[in-house]
Simulated scan of single mutants.
Amino acid sequence: MTEERARRRARLASGERGVLVEPAADALTLYAVFTGVPFAVAAYCLTVQRAELGAVGLTFLLVGFAAGVPLALLIGERRRAATLVTEIRATHPLGPDCHPVRTGLNEPGRAPGHPWDTTPPRDAVVSVQDGTLQLRAENGDALDIPFTDILGVLLLPAGRGRAAADLHLHSGEAIELRTTRIRPLGVTLSEAGVRVLFEEVSV
């Protein structure tokens, strides 16, 4: 385990109380608003007030296109995630809330790493059901972790890289679950009774 992850584990092993993660506004809705408003202003300027506000309309049109790029990327990512969940659900019984994640390619450090943490990167789905955290990979691998085996989860907001949930077990092993939707995953875990903490990430 690396020094940084050892520090996270020490924090989880302390008496710090876990938090109940609250849902946040959906990023897709926010991006849609930021994209739709400039297009609406552009449409007005270029049709109703074209003579007086034509240049303004063109400016807002460009702003709308620029704001639409992350929206298009987000929609594409959501579709890929939904496809992954559908494919894995077809072969594995899962809980009601499923979260696409990516695992693997972490350094084991001084202590042996968990196989799901040190193998080559792969897409997987996280779910909780009947007091168990379920991990199901696209290649068919499956892992069930009883809540009693979990020391806690540290949520790492996106800083220098992709956001992740660092899952630590009482055995000393850890599994990093990388995801772009860290808060929904945190909501599911904390509401199910898993101890969850946030870590501030400096950019």
Results as ranks from 00 to 15, higher is better:
121 P>S: 13
146 P>A: 06
93 P>R: 09
81 A>C: 06
162 R>Q: 15
103 T>A: 10
134 Q>W: 05
160 R>C: 08
129 Q>W: 12
159 G>Q: 11
122 R>E: 10
83 T>R: 12
134 Q>K: 05
128 V>G: 06
102 R>V: 15
139 N>F: 04
158 A>G: 10
111 A>Q: 14
148 T>R: 08
101 V>Q: 05
93 P>T: 09
106 N>I: 01
143 L>K: 10
133 L>C: 07
158 A>Q: 13
113 G>Q: 03
93 P>L: 05
139 N>Y: 04
123 D>L: 12
101 V>G: 06
114 H>E: 03
120 P>W: 08
113 G>S: 06
126 V>Q: 01
92 H>L: 08
90 A>T: 05
132 T>R: 13
156 L>F: 04
153 V>C: 11
96 P>C: 05
93 P>G: 04
135 L>K: 05
126 V>D: 02
89 R>N: 11
126 V>W: 00
106 N>L: 15
132 T>W: 03
96 P>Q: 12
107 E>Y: 10
96 P>K: 11
145 I>S: 01
161 G>H: 08
91 T>F: 11
93 P>H: 02
138 E>W: 04
159 G>Y: 03
131 G>D: 03
116 W>A: 08
81 A>G: 10
137 A>I: 07
146 P>Q: 01
160 R>V: 14
121 P>I: 09
155 L>T: 02
137 A>Q: 08
138 E>T: 10
91 T>L: 10
90 A>W: 06
97 D>R: 15
111 A>Y: 14
112 P>T: 04
159 G>N: 12
92 H>P: 01
110 R>D: 15
137 A>V: 06
146 P>T: 05
100 P>S: 08
86 T>I: 00
98 C>P: 02
156 L>S: 12
105 L>Q: 15
78 R>V: 07
119 T>Y: 00
107 E>N: 14
135 L>D: 05
136 R>E: 09
111 A>H: 15
157 P>T: 05
143 L>T: 00
93 P>E: 10
96 P>N: 08
124 A>V: 04
98 C>I: 02
157 P>M: 04
161 G>P: 06
85 V>P: 02
126 V>I: 15
109 G>L: 07
120 P>C: 09
81 A>P: 00
107 E>Q: 13
95 G>V: 08
160 R>P: 09
115 P>T: 04
109 G>Y: 06
